[in-house]
Every structure is written in C-alpha cells, then in structure tokens.
Design a protein around this nucleic acid. Sequence first.
DNA 1: GCAATTGGGTAGTGCCACTGTCTAATCTGG
DNA 2: CCAGATTAGACAGTGGCACTACCCAATTGC
Lengths: 211, 211
Amino acid sequence: MRISELGRRSGVSTATIKYYLREGLLPPGRATAATQAEYDETHLRRLRLIRALIGVRGLSVAAAGHVLHAMDEHRSDPHEVLGIAFGIRPPGSGTPDTTEEEPSPEAAALIDAMGWSVSGSNPAREVVDRTLRTLRSLDIAYDWRTLLPYAELAERTARLDLDRIEATTDPMEKAEQAVLLTFLLEPALMALRRLAQENESTARHTGDGSA
Amino acid sequence: MRISELGRRSGVSTATIKYYLREGLLPPGRATAATQAEYDETHLRRLRLIRALIGVRGLSVAAAGHVLHAMDEHRSDPHEVLGIAFGIRPPGSGTPDTTEEEPSPEAAALIDAMGWSVSGSNPAREVVDRTLRTLRSLDIAYDWRTLLPYAELAERTARLDLDRIEATTDPMEKAEQAVLLTFLLEPALMALRRLAQENESTARHTGDGSA
DNA sequence: GCAATTGGGTAGTGCCACTGTCTAATCTGG
DNA sequence: CCAGATTAGACAGTGGCACTACCCAATTGC
C-alpha cells in the first residue's frame, strides 16, 4: 500500500507518518520509484505500536524511538530489551537541584532486603531514591522499609508479567510482548490502583466511622 | 520572608515563583505594601509540593493546579480529594480516533468481578478500557479477565495506601497524605515493578533454560 | 497528454513551561 | 532626606516538542 492508504488505515495523517519516518520510528517503505514507496502490514502494525507508546503510555517521540530500536536490535531477547527499555527516563531526571551523585543507597537497601538481583545501572533505582528523598523533604516519614510491602506486590506483578512474556511461543514476538506489557500496561495498572483506592475508601467510609 | 529568599530556599527562581502565583498554584503572600509581600513556611512547603508533582510525578502545571485546588477545598476529606484528583487525565484522552461514547464495558466487568464499588465517572475506567482496546488492536489477546490477577494486587496496594492515609492523625493533613501517596508514589511503584521484572527475568534466565 | 498523487525536504504553527524586561513603589543605610 | 537595591505585577519573548503546511519534481493512471 502507499502512504495515503497507510494513513487512512491507521488514522494517522500522512504528514505525521512522514515525520515518524524522518525520526526513524517507522522504517521506510520499499521504494518502487523515486517518488513512490510501498508499505505493508508490518508498517501498519508498527505505526499502531508507535501511537500506543506515545498516545496511551505518554512516551515522547524520542523515548518511543529508543524503545523501538532496542526492540529491533534484540528481537528474540526480551531480557535484553527490558534492560535497554528501562533506560527511558521518567520526567525530572535532567536538572537535579542539590546533589546528584549519590548511588541510590536506599534503593540498594530495598533490593538487598528483597533478595533481588538488579543491575546497578537500572535507572529505576534512582526513581525510588528520588521519590523517597522528595517525600521526606515534605516531612512525610518514608524510607525503604515503608516500601517493602509495595515491593512484595511489585514482585508478584513482575511474575505475572514474565509468565505472560514466556507464554509467547514465537521468540520473535517475545521482545514485543515485553515492551507492550511493560509500557502499555503501566497506565492500566495505575488505573487499577485508583479504582481499588476508591473502592477501599468508600468501604472504609460507609462501614464504620471509627476503629 | 520575601520572594527572593523563598526562591533561594526552594531552589526555584523568583521568575518561576511569580509564574506559579499567576497560575494560582501558590497562594499569594501577605501584602505588606504595594510592592512588598511576606511569605512563610507554608509557602515554602507548598512550593516543594508543586515541584514534586510537576518534577517527580510529571504532572503538567495545569493538572498540578487541579490537584492542589481539590486538596485545598477538602482539606480534611481525603475521600473527596481522591475522587477529584482522579479526574486528572492521562495523556491521550483528548482526541479519540474512532469511537468515544462507549461506557467502558470491560472495566465495568472487571470492577463487577472484583466486587468493587466505584463511581461510574471515575476516568480510570476509561484508561483500563482504552489499554485493552489498544492491546487487542496490536493482536495481543488481552481482556478484563487477564487483568484480574493484577486487580487483586492493585487491591492490596490500595489497602496499603489507605492504611497509611488513615494513620495520619491530623485530619488537616490527610488530604495532603492522600495526594502525596497517590501521585508521588506512582513513579516509585512503576520503578519497583521494573526492578522486580529485571530480577525475575535474570532469575529465570540463569536458573534453567526450559520448563 | 495531463490532472492528480506521491516522496522528500524545509519551514511554519500552536502549545507549554518558563524567563526576561519594564515600571513604579518600597525599603535600607547613612 | 536621599541614593541604591529590592520588589510586585504585568507582559512580551524564548526554546523545546509534536506535529502540520507547503513546495517541487517525479510518477501514475486514465
């Protein structure tokens, strides 16, 4: 198919498709002439994946590009893809205010307490530490011990994730599964937490007023 | 203190503080003269909270404003605050491509299966449904049943959250606790999931190669 | 043959989160 | 009382991001 049909079928304007091509998110079509290229179903799928990462998960175009490239380079190795994809920075990792060279001591303590084996370069360590530091700067008594029960639940969540990834028979699709489950599921998991919070809050309010 | 000291102590430029004042995120100081105002510790704390919501959690200035206002209006009613704060839209809720009037049937099924009591207007419903629809458009077999085990874990997470909120003795601080735990903890929870995923992936790789 | 479409490139747009500048009114120290 | 610094408040400007519009030459298909 040509670019206009790709646009119609995906709901993305041809201008935007061209933009993604320029940014390298979408591989170029097979050129049939100087001003003509042919796209296929894989392009359509890739485009849907791009839109999902950007629109549903909220990644920037550049971050989506990193994830996609990691996925392309390690098509059959989800472990590797996850490692690279983790490198995506959450907002606020660029301009630390005060200190910035701490080696995330609290995340390390938590990881140790959980008996986990995690690379020292995993940026999630920093996220945990930064969150704890921020909470304390707001006078909320929180440290890695407070996060332990959450870590326990995260461990079970990760087991569900990995079960799902391993259930994929086609090894070529495993990397994509990993990306999809890790990134696309994040908003849904946070949404589930909010639904559960509302339910729990309502239950405790209507049940009884005191302990 | 005056605005310059507020800026020095918080690490935020006076220009940015003025911007937050204009946007209504930060209440104005007590005016002592036409060109002079006095700020106190509550302003400093509020400013830190603003920076945390924007920088750590990644909310937009406008979204942070909504959360903060909901918090101000229901200082002692965390249940109400959570309800309003939930109204913050995740990215991608503005321009639906195809249909948009569906009443989130899958989220409803999930909520029903869990026995939860959740308001029909909770936007988290839509997030769940949109995620499921997106996954299926990418040929991933996922429906609300697949999310059930995740919902179970979300329920436990929510119980931890509510325990923490209720442990706050000062009712005036409950609303702030709720906001802090719900929003600021989100990046940390996702980070924990990624740490656990890496650990789990490593464990399964090094343990043995087959089932 | 010729209007319509396309690929590829460049420039422009709108939004967001600040940031800089200006003015007039204070405040501070001598 | 006065010089110099500071400040509140208003408004214009900036830089980054994600598109979006336009242009041109080549190509297509009737």
